[in-house]
Structures are given as structure tokens and as C-alpha cells.
Design a protein around this nucleic acid. Sequence first.
DNA 1: CTCGGACCTGGAGCGCGCACCAGGTCAAGA
DNA 2: TCTTGACCTGGTGCGCGCTCCAGGTCCGAG
Lengths: 118, 118
Amino acid sequence: MSPTTTLTPATTADRTGVSIDTLRYYEREGLIGPIRRTGGGRREYTEEDVFWIGLVTCFREAGLGIADLRGFVAILRAEHPPQDRVAFLQDRRAALEQRVAALGRAMKVLDEKIAYYS
Amino acid sequence: MSPTTTLTPATTADRTGVSIDTLRYYEREGLIGPIRRTGGGRREYTEEDVFWIGLVTCFREAGLGIADLRGFVAILRAEHPPQDRVAFLQDRRAALEQRVAALGRAMKVLDEKIAYYS
DNA sequence: CTCGGACCTGGAGCGCGCACCAGGTCAAGA
DNA sequence: TCTTGACCTGGTGCGCGCTCCAGGTCCGAG
């Protein structure tokens, strides 16, 4: 009937690499969802949900915190004017660049030590 | 008499941007020091200590954990063979590169969103 | 000598990002 | 129908990286 396949929590966890507990946590924190439920109350994840979870994971791996991601979600969902969105996104981007710079400094130190001991 | 100036905890905190509590914490965890003490038991930081604290801060800002840094300290201090040190340092460097890659992926996503809303 | 402020130690508290658990519900297969 | 296992909610626990506090000590200025 419905052409859209849905995924169980276990399958979703498997596909995204995010644990079921963490998926529920993200949903509670408003980072994903709200996820649709079956009549019995079980979660049904869509492919769209999976994609969004991938985005969240991407930013988590980049070191963004839950609060940051909540802001991100709010900006992409709400009716903020486009220029607000762009400003927000550019601000986040600048923060990531700072992190890259910090990593670069640390790597430079490591390179010096490596050169010293080689 | 002694040509080497020493710094009080407050001054050291000021110069390094690390709080006194955190300096004590780092010392307890073996990341810095042990810091020399005066007769009365107060800490006396040297310029060398300050430099080392800078290194620790650099790696902390790059996202390394306390345990990682402890390993780093152990490698740089202990009598590990040079090739062990190099291997360890290169391993750490690879981990940092992974983080840079993760940041790059997140920034790419941001760039796409920015382009979309611009 | 006294006062006050910087410092000491040991330990408790806290926010984050989950992981785990108990006790109960739902649903597919025998 | 009964069993079994995946799932539900709510709550607790935990490691990390500090941060703060109490109660006491040191020491320089007045």
C-alpha cells in the first residue's frame, strides 16, 4: 500500500551507527524527529529520518555539542529569515575553522617532535 | 641569587589562561609538573612550566583528552626508544587528521546550506 | 604582632553525552 | 493461546573535565 518503507529502531540504529538509546536521547533533545509511531506506540523511522540522523552524526563527529545542534535544527526548521540562517551558518562555519586552526597548531607541534626524534 | 624567576599560581594562571584549579588538576593528573614548592608549601612555577602548560593547552584545544595527554607526557619524558616515540606521535597525528577530516565534512554541509540559502 | 589575602588539601558538585536498568507493553510465530 | 523478543517510559549511573567549597596555613604590609 504505502510506497514508503519504514524502519524499526534496531534497523535504524544499525544503519546509522547510532545506538537506540542515543536515538531516543536525540529525539528527546529535539535534534531529530519527532519520529512517527505505530498504533502500538513503536517508533517508525523514515529514510528522511535516517538522512537527518546522518547530518546530526556528521556534526557530532565534528565536535559540535547537543545545544549547538539544537540551534542548527531550529534555524533550518523555523521561519527565520534567510539572512538569519546564513548568518548563523556562517558563524558556525567560522567556529569550525577555529577548531581546524587549533588542530593545525597541535599537529605542527607533533610534527616538530616527530622531526626531532627521527 | 637565583637568576631564574618563579611565578605564583595566580600569575601563572593569568599568563597561561588556565585557572588555578585547573593547574592543580593537571598536576594531579600528571600532565604538568610536579611543580616545585616553597618552604611553606606554595607552588612556584618556572618559565619552563609555563611553556609546558602552553603545550598542554594547545593539545586540549585540539580536543585531546586528559588520558591522551598523559600518554604524550609519558612518551616525551620516559626512556622509551625513539622509534616508539615516533610511532606514538605519528599515531596521534593521524588521529588529529581524522578530526580535521570530520570537520571538513561538517563544513562542506554548512557550505551547501549556506549556498542554498544565499 | 596582627590582619588580610593568597594559597593549601581533600572532597563534593556539575554539565555533558550518553549507557543501562526495571517494569511493563506490543506483536509475530508455534 | 502462549511464548518470545523487540520495544516502550522514566529514572539512575558514569566518565570526563573541570569548578567550587570548607577549613586550615603561610606570609607581607602596616
